[in-house]
């Protein structure tokens, strides 16, 4: 459904400098700077996939999404989405996509979301019966009831975000781009929105999720693409990502005596709160779990302990530092 090949985007920007003197000079003479935002990335996404597209700030994530949504032209490379080249057949292409931007609202502040939905009905040429049916289904699914008839400014952030989703999905797009869809939301609103995304995904909608919220990724994405410095540094399933560093465990230990860790390969201290409280990452391919626990207990006497798999945050942080 989505085919991206050797996609590149190069920007020319100007250096202004940080000091007042440099800013003043830049009024007359500006130094050109070429930025390779995307450096020839390739990937394919099948219909019905829900892919997490991650990367640190300035990695090239937004540039890639802007190219895929037809907003921006690439410097070179190929993109084929549902048979369209986004920047060449923009108007035809965008009829089939939807987008939710957590920080850019498509609703109109002073009027009810329902009025904004009506505007989208005209823009996307949605037949009246179909429009009414979709709105009532989605309002029900997102538990919005009569809130869609209240002015947008009177709605909470969570309610507004739910309405943004309806706005983006009224025309039943086949591909939806989500950019930070749960930013600033409370846990209940996040959960509802995640449920909604999964429900729509089950019906066959393809989602590309860009976020810094790794909980969203863990709950939603089955596949993850990580981009850094304009290059793809990881493209595989969530399960494989969890085992990215091999079989590792995070162990949080509290001891009665001062902690003495065994001198052995495969033990790394992640954080130490005190002489009696430590968090370590152990590589099970190098040291057995029972052997590690036995040795620590002999030396320091364990009073409390928790064992967890390696958190996604830790793995992603490592990928971002590549």
């Amino acid at each position: 459904m989505i085919h991206v090949s050797e996609l590149k985007k190069t920007f020319t920007t100007y250096e202004r400098g940080g000091t007042f003197r440099e800013a003043l000079i830049s009024l007359f003479v500006r130094k050109k700077k070429t930025v390779n935002a995307v450096k020839g990335i390739s990937f394919d996404i099948e219909e019905g996939e829900l892919v997490g597209f991650l990367g640190p700030n300035g990695a090239g994530k937004s540039t890639t999404i802007k190219i895929l949504t037809g907003i921006m032209h690439p410097t070179s490379g190929e993109v084929d989405i549902m048979g369209y080249t986004p920047w060449k057949n923009r108007r035809k292409y965008v009829e089939n996509i939807g987008a939710v931007f957590g920080q850019k609202s498509q609703l109109l502040w002073d009027i009810p979301p329902l009025d904004a939905f009506n505007l989208n009905q005209s823009i996307y040429r949605i037949p009246s019966n179909e429009f009414k049916k979709t709105v009532s289904e989605m309002v029900e699914m997102l538990a919005l009831k009569d809130l869609v008839k209240k002015p947008t400014r009177q709605l909470s952030l969570g309610e507004r975000m739910k309405c943004e989703f309806i706005m983006a999905m009224l025309h039943k797009p086949r591909v939806v781009f989500l950019d930070e869809p749960t930013i600033g939301l409370d846990v209940i609103a996040k959960e509802k929105i995640r449920e909604f995304i999964l429900e729509q995904n089950k019906k066959g909608t393809t989602f590309i999720l860009t976020t810094h919220d790794l909980e969203d990724v863990e709950h939603l994405a089955k596949r993850v693409i990580v981009i850094n410095h304009g290059e793809i540094v990881y493209d595989d399933s969530m399960d494989k990502l969890r085992n990215y560093f091999g079989e590792k465990k995070t162990i949080h230990l509290t001891t009665r005596k001062k902690i003495m860790l065994p001198k052995h390969e495969g033990i790394a201290v992640r954080s130490q709160l005190s002489d009696y409280d430590i968090e370590v990452v152990i590589d099970l391919s190098q040291i057995k779990l029972n052997e590690f626990i036995k040795k620590v207990n002999e030396e320091s006497v364990i009073s409390d302990m928790s064992i967890e798999g390696l958190e996604l945050e830790y793995i992603i942080k490592d990928l971002y530092q590549v």
Binding site: L108, W109, D110, I111, D115, A116, N118, L119, S122, I123, R125, P127, S128, P151
Partner: peptide, 26 residues
């Protein structure tokens, strides 16, 4: 009428209605 609603003019009229509704809120 339906055809008109989905035409460019229809979108324009819908846009005017939304803007007027926004301003009339105050």
């Amino acid at each position: 009428m339906k055809g008109l609603r989905y035409s460019g003019f229809g979108v324009y009229i819908q846009g005017i209605k939304s803007s007027l509704a926004s301003r009339m809120a105050y």
